[in-house]
Design a protein around this nucleic acid. Sequence first.
DNA 1: CCCGGTTTGTGAAATCATTCACCGGAGGCG
DNA 2: CGCCTCCGGTGAATGATTTCACAAACCGGG
Lengths: 220, 220
Amino acid sequence: MRPGPSMARISESTVRRLSHYYRVLEEVQAEGKRMISSHRLAEREGITSAQVRKDLSYFGSFGRRGLGYNVDHLRDQIRAILGLERRWRVALVGAGNIGSALLAYRGFQKQGFDIVAVFDRDAARVGQRLGSHVVQDITRLSATGTGESFDIGVVATPIQAAQEVADALVEAGVRGILNFAPRKLFVPEHVALRTVDMAMEFESLSFALTQARGPRRRRA
Amino acid sequence: MRPGPSMARISESTVRRLSHYYRVLEEVQAEGKRMISSHRLAEREGITSAQVRKDLSYFGSFGRRGLGYNVDHLRDQIRAILGLERRWRVALVGAGNIGSALLAYRGFQKQGFDIVAVFDRDAARVGQRLGSHVVQDITRLSATGTGESFDIGVVATPIQAAQEVADALVEAGVRGILNFAPRKLFVPEHVALRTVDMAMEFESLSFALTQARGPRRRRA
DNA sequence: CCCGGTTTGTGAAATCATTCACCGGAGGCG
DNA sequence: CGCCTCCGGTGAATGATTTCACAAACCGGG
């Protein structure tokens, strides 16, 4: 389970690329290929082969010189590294647009993330069916938490409620939070936090498009 | 419009932080504060004050020594830098879960991003009403493009269609693409690309949670 | 068994991003 | 006015990440 070398601090970007490699390997597997070189893995991700090898080297030696990587084996290794061999219990807070979309999309479940409970604060939504779930009142989060716990909490609420909800999730014992509200959340050291900020992505595009006309673009 | 110094290459992280500053400034404005220091701006984002000052310095000198930044003024400046003074015409491709959520969420419109057309390939969805839009067949993308053009295209399709759709959007003349499909897209040099990969974020959490129990966590 | 063509793993170098540390402008107070 | 405190702008130092470049491993063929 910890096959790698000294297990130094792994950068966030490395982990993100591991996810990408994993997806490419699934594709390549479906294409029936048995081996793949770092070079070909890289070109499908638009990065350099050295980057691929370096990323993998943090966790061990999975390739064979002169041959490349065995697709099945590397996929299994990355799967283990990312912790995808087990299933994760996810609590979703916020049954609005994004929350509903996440719930309806079955792809996460396929990867091992089970949304096992849905909460909302709005009385109009509490009690309603949403897919196979019944929306529970947010106050029941801690109550439920004592009986059956969650690994991960998803914050899909309006911006004003986000920090409060995050606190409640931490209270309920989650060890990771995925935040869709466009603001910085503060959580204890031992809780992992990732944020998906779509407004920010739009604004980043807006910036790029605005710049594009002024100064010359980056080199080829 | 280009108030800054030599206008060096601005890093992606700096632009992302500008978005954050912008949001914090809106909050602070609502609280009625007139001035804010880099230190207080930083602590609301969980970063250092030097980072704030450095980020802003790429674009000009907006503060006053001893006083800090004028909230209204700085907000306006960042708004201009991010290109949020104009409105952007957005084409949405994919009327599934994510697409519908994006359409229903009015927040982007408030920031200047108008979804002006919705496309899908699925015959079952084409022709249906979705909010105030009628879903058009994907093949009409290029046709529409000649008449009225789009600035930004949003790819909210299944993974298999994503590259094809991106190509069609480029063909239709968009200058930026926001991709929600969990795969690397290839677009020409002159088209800006941003990707929101929720599966990757979940996997990144899974990694963090898996690591947490093994080796010691990072320092305080 | 040796040679040539591949491809990994990895220190070293280069590049990129963040933080430090200090100068100088700004106001307040006695 | 003189002094003290506050705080932005910025070059220099540090730190993190990516790329380079090459020795060693591996296979196939003669």
